[in-house]
């Protein structure tokens, strides 16, 4: 990131905003699915994983049940592998009980082109057959390149293509928590 784009950084969500957004998503998930039965939350590395854990935590608090939560690395299913240097893999951890006949909620930090979710659907496909797949994201910044939409959105942030959205999580990045928009016209 250039010094110039740093200059035009703008915080769009504070830590408390993030927490409220996740609480709302947790409620919406329960509402939509009429309770917590058969729910499995899978975070997409890297920041989708702590977000999934937080949402699961909140659901557990509301419902007094343990929600299975895991992670799903989609690196090997990406369609842009050859456009970039190979990356290190992150763990895939499927909770005990698997995903067959479950409602899988994929959790990621930012929804952008939709290609990550597409890869995640491929990855899921070889692991099992959920009864339903839903998508929860903290930020939807638009610019979809595939027919994919989020079922739960923390905040919609209209962006231009030259801007970048950075999510910083206290428990993951060991830094003060916020969502920042970099670049653009400032």
């Amino acid at each position: 990131m250039s010094a110039n784009s740093r200059n035009s950084a703008r915080v769009v969500l504070e830590s408390s905003d993030i927490s409220r957004a996740l609480t709302r998503i947790a409620h919406e998930i329960l509402e939509n699915n009429k309770g917590s039965k058969d729910l499995v939350l899978l975070g997409i590395p890297s920041r989708g994983v702590p977000l999934a854990k937080r949402i699961a935590q909140k659901i557990s608090e509301f419902e007094k049940v343990v929600i299975p939560v895991g992670s799903l690395d989609i690196t090997m299913y990406r369609d842009d592998l050859r456009l970039r240097p190979p990356r290190a893999l992150a763990p895939t951890e499927i909770p005990e009980g698997g995903i067959d006949h479950k409602v899988v909620i994929l959790v990621d930090d930012v929804l952008f082109s939709g290609r990550t979710i597409r890869a995640a659907l491929d990855a899921l496909n070889v692991i099992g057959r959920p009864s339903m797949v839903q998508v929860a994201v903290l930020i939807d910044r638009g610019h979809r390149e595939l027919p994919i939409k989020a079922d739960y959105v923390g905040k919609n942030i209209p962006t231009s293509l030259i801007e970048t959205v950075q999510v910083t999580l206290a428990d993951f990045d060991d830094a003060s928590e916020n969502v920042t928009l970099f670049g653009g016209e400032g």
Binding site: M76, L81, R82, L83, R84, P85, P86, R87, A88
Partner: peptide, 12 residues
């Protein structure tokens, strides 16, 4: 994967 999966010689 690491030698063939990406675009060039760099990994990481």
């Amino acid at each position: 994967y690491l030698l063939l999966g990406g675009t060039n010689n760099e990994t990481g």
